[in-house]
Design a protein around this nucleic acid. Structure first.
Length: 154
DNA sequence: GCCAACGTTGGC
DNA sequence: GCCAACGTTGGC
């Protein structure tokens, strides 16, 4: 069982959008970074838990919990010229990009802002808090998960 | 809107 | 294989 943090810009896709999806499940499409793809493809397991993180917004924060609902499979948007995630260089017989389906679990009554995470000593080694981190999918340790989850209930 | 950090691209 | 140029991310 692994723990993850997955970023999304709420203007593009927020946790409320996930709640409104059919069965509250949605393909996590548009990942166009090899490291993030490799984590989805090689390390994510069905049932893994992930924090939903709102990025590039007024109050960047961990806003809830999802779980991995599928194995990794081909992201269809890479072949769709109408999609903003279209990748004309991806070979159809050897697709570059994959995705997993994510399922809604919980929306926090108290989102945990990035500014709060920065004040917690136990979280000082988190990749999310490291300067220059731009990965949209990050692994979280079990102890980090617990600390952040408890902050949402505090 | 600014800018630092970082990944990717492409010429050589 | 190097590296400069460029594009993107994302906090502030």
């Amino acid at each position: 069982m692994n723990y993850w943090l997955m970023k999304s810009e709420p203007d593009a896709f927020s946790i409320n959008d996930l709640i409104d999806c059919e069965n509250q499940i949605e393909p996590w499409d548009g990942i166009r970074n090899y490291q993030a793809r490799n984590m989805m493809r090689d390390q994510m397991k069905i049932g893994d838990l992930a924090f939903f993180y709102h990025s590039s917004c007024k109050v960047p924060a961990v806003v809830g919990v999802m779980k991995v609902h599928s194995e990794a499979y081909t992201d269809p948007t890479q072949f769709d010229p109408e999609s903003k995630y279209y990748d004309p260089k991806s070979p159809p017989d050897n697709p570059r990009w994959q995705l997993v389906d994510m399922e809604f679990v919980e929306k926090f009554d108290r989102p945990v802002p990035l500014s709060t995470l920065r004040t917690i000593a136990e979280l000082s080694e988190m990749k999310l808090l490291k300067k220059g981190n731009r990965l949209s999918i990050l692994p979280i340790t079990a102890s980090e998960w617990e600390v952040i989850y408890n902050l949402s209930k505090a």
